[in-house]
């Protein structure tokens, strides 16, 4: 069984502080991490690998050469192989241009029985790339997945929706985008780290993937960013003390009345 997991390197948020005036993120340090939901996707791939015979888990990432670190981490966690998709031609890709590159990698690897990725990444937060890749590969797709139960040549999958969850039965191959609920990612083992140190991670560009530069990067992206600005988040905060006089609670009730809640 060939399992492929897409992982994206994103800026870590642990050291992030907020500028209270502008509400923008102030990044301290350059700690890039694997997108948290992609770690869940990888964990799920490894868990399935333990349940079936002869499964091979390949982690695939598109990004700058420094994204090799994320793939090494994936191998340390238990992935069998990593592939880095990196080229200047990929720079400025929107979701559809990104999906073209990632789906081409799956094709070059001879197709997959199961493709997993996080439902969204913490930086772009679009959640669009997974369903786009599925469409390009002609695979059924289940999004917002919180459980995958193996059952021979098929799986029973649970996907979270607004007021509950849906249970769907789907034969392999398919693509699933996963949410945090699905599992608890584990930590790399020493043996894994040693293996990751020795692992060869190939780097593929448009030539290896057989892609036309016109469909890639900014040139191949149908969307354009017109402008980027900081939202005005700082509010005129009215701060009251809970001092035993009951005034704070009275003020709160007044607000709820003004807002016609009560």
């Amino acid at each position: 069984m060939k399992i492929m997991v897409f992982i994206k390197q994103v800026p870590g948020t642990d050291n992030v502080k907020m500028n209270p005036e502008t509400g923008t993120m102030v990044r301290t340090g350059s700690n890039n991490v694997i997108n948290p939901l992609d770690e869940n996707a990888l964990e799920e791939a490894l868990s399935i690998k333990r349940q079936v015979q002869d499964a091979v888990v390949t982690a695939i990432s598109m990004g700058p050469l420094s994204a090799r670190k994320a793939l090494n981490e994936a191998i340390a966690l238990g992935a069998d192989a990593g592939v880095l998709l990196s080229s200047r031609a990929f720079a400025g890709s929107d979701t559809i241009a990104t999906a073209r590159v990632l789906s081409a990698a799956v094709r070059k690897l001879g197709g997959a029985d199961l493709v997993l990725c996080g439902e969204r990444a913490t930086d772009g937060e679009t959640g669009q790339t997974g369903p786009m890749i599925a469409e390009m590969l002609g695979l059924p797709v289940i999004t917002f997945v919180k459980r995958i139960q193996m059952n021979g040549d098929r799986a029973v999958v649970e996907r979270m929706v607004e007021n509950g969850f849906e249970r769907v039965e789907v034969p392999f191959p398919f693509l699933a985008t996963v949410i945090k609920d699905i599992n608890e990612p584990s930590f790399p083992t020493l043996a894994g780290k040693l293996r990751a140190g020795k692992a060869e991670v190939p780097v593929w560009g448009p030539v290896e993937l057989g892609l036309d530069n016109g469909k890639l990067g900014l040139a191949g992206s149908p969307t354009r960013v017109v402008k980027v600005f900081s939202p005005k988040l700082a509010r005129n905060t009215r701060l009251l003390k809970q001092d035993g006089s009951g005034q704070a609670v009275r003020e709160l009730l007044k607000v709820l009345r003004e807002k016609e809640v009560i």
């Binding site: 923008t24 993120m25 930086d123 937060e125 969307t223 402008k227 980027v228 900081s230 939202p231």
Partner: peptide, 17 residues
């Protein structure tokens, strides 16, 4: 749309398709 957890707003267009 908001991005990076609502810390940045971006205005986007689709000019050619």
């Amino acid at each position: 749309r908001p991005a990076i957890g609502g810390n940045i707003m971006a205005t986007i267009k689709t000019p050619f398709t």
